[in-house]
Amino acid sequence: MTGVFLLNTGSTIEEGRLAKGGSKLTDDYTRECAVCEMNLADFLAMGSPDRVKVTSRDGHSVVVYAYGAEKLSSGQVFMPRAIWSNVVVDPETFSSGSPLYKGSPVKVEPSNDMVLSAEELTAKLYKLQKRG
């Protein structure tokens, strides 16, 4: 199963502990935040993938670890607020200045690609092209 889901991003206490402790470039942070929580039935229907590729409407994508849980209704996914989730957050602010951190439509599909660390993802996606 591949489909369009509504992405909810938000805090987890371990994400908070690691971010506030200056540990964003560590393996612990990747394990905690480079994840996509799915509705259990959706996860099973997708074949219980180890990793999924999440793609936004504007074409940005990120590969993260996947797991199923009973916390969400079908059609919704949750990712901790961190660099991985924000790659696929819709940048439209609806004239408010605040992007759609909650409720962005995303495509989720199984993937065999590697999950990148925050450092690797920054280097890959945001390659320096400095002007001036």
Partner: peptide, 19 residues
């Protein structure tokens, strides 16, 4: 603040291009 982590990709891409 860590804007590259917490802003959408389109914003972070541009931050990597300007001083």
């Amino acid at each position: 603040a860590d804007l590259v982590s917490h802003f959408p990709a389109a914003c972070s891409e541009y931050l990597a291009q300007i001083p």
